[in-house]
């Protein structure tokens, strides 16, 4: 053994069954032959027994396997709280609304503009009709000078009359 600490660690490892067969035999010989090693061995043995008794008397041993116990703690750490869940849902909803607004708003504006333009177009067409009424011009091209054309403004009727004698008359 290099030094006292090294000896202490080896003896502790022996009691914890962490040594290989060769090293374990070496420590067993040491515990028999050397006084200091015996003292350390007694000390470790005594404290191990004390700890074991405490576990048994006060029930400090884990009720469930070690892995399961820590898995539970890990899941509680990583599991989001109710506040996190609610705030996450609210944020998600707000984001969706924002996305819809971002998409729908321009479409709505364009649709409104189109509707206004169509209405304005119709209004302009009616206005044009009125203007064309005021600038009403009739062009009649006939070979026969006897053809009569006249306009009834109140009824909105233009008549072109062909005063030919009817067949057989």
């Amino acid at each position: 053994m290099k030094n006292r600490m090294d000896k202490l660690l080896k003896i502790q490892a022996y009691f914890d069954n962490e040594l290989g067969p060769a090293e374990a035999r070496e420590i067993e010989q040491l515990l028999v032959s050397e006084t200091e090693a015996q003292r350390i061995g007694d000390f470790i043995h005594k404290h191990r027994e004390t700890l074991r008794k405490l576990d048994l008397e006060h029930g400090y041993s884990l009720p469930i396997p070690f892995e399961v116990y820590w898995a539970g703690i890990r899941s509680r750490i990583t599991q989001p709280s109710m506040i996190d869940v609610i705030s996450g849902a609210i944020l998600d909803f707000v984001e969706r609304v924002r996305l819809i607004r971002r998409t729908v708003a321009p479409v709505t504006v364009i649709a409104v503009c189109l509707i206004l333009c169509i209405l304005a177009g119709n209004a302009l067409t009616r206005y044009r009709s009125r203007v064309s009424n005021t600038k009403f011009e009739i062009v009649a091209l006939v070979k026969d000078p006897g053809v009569v054309t006249y306009r009834d403004w109140t009824q909105g009727v233009t008549l072109m009359w062909f005063p030919y004698p009817a067949n057989g008359e």
Binding site: F136, V142, K143
Partner: peptide
């Protein structure tokens, strides 16, 4: 026989 041109709203 004849042709007439006019607005017809």
């Amino acid at each position: 026989v004849g042709t007439v041109v006019q607005p017809l709203p």
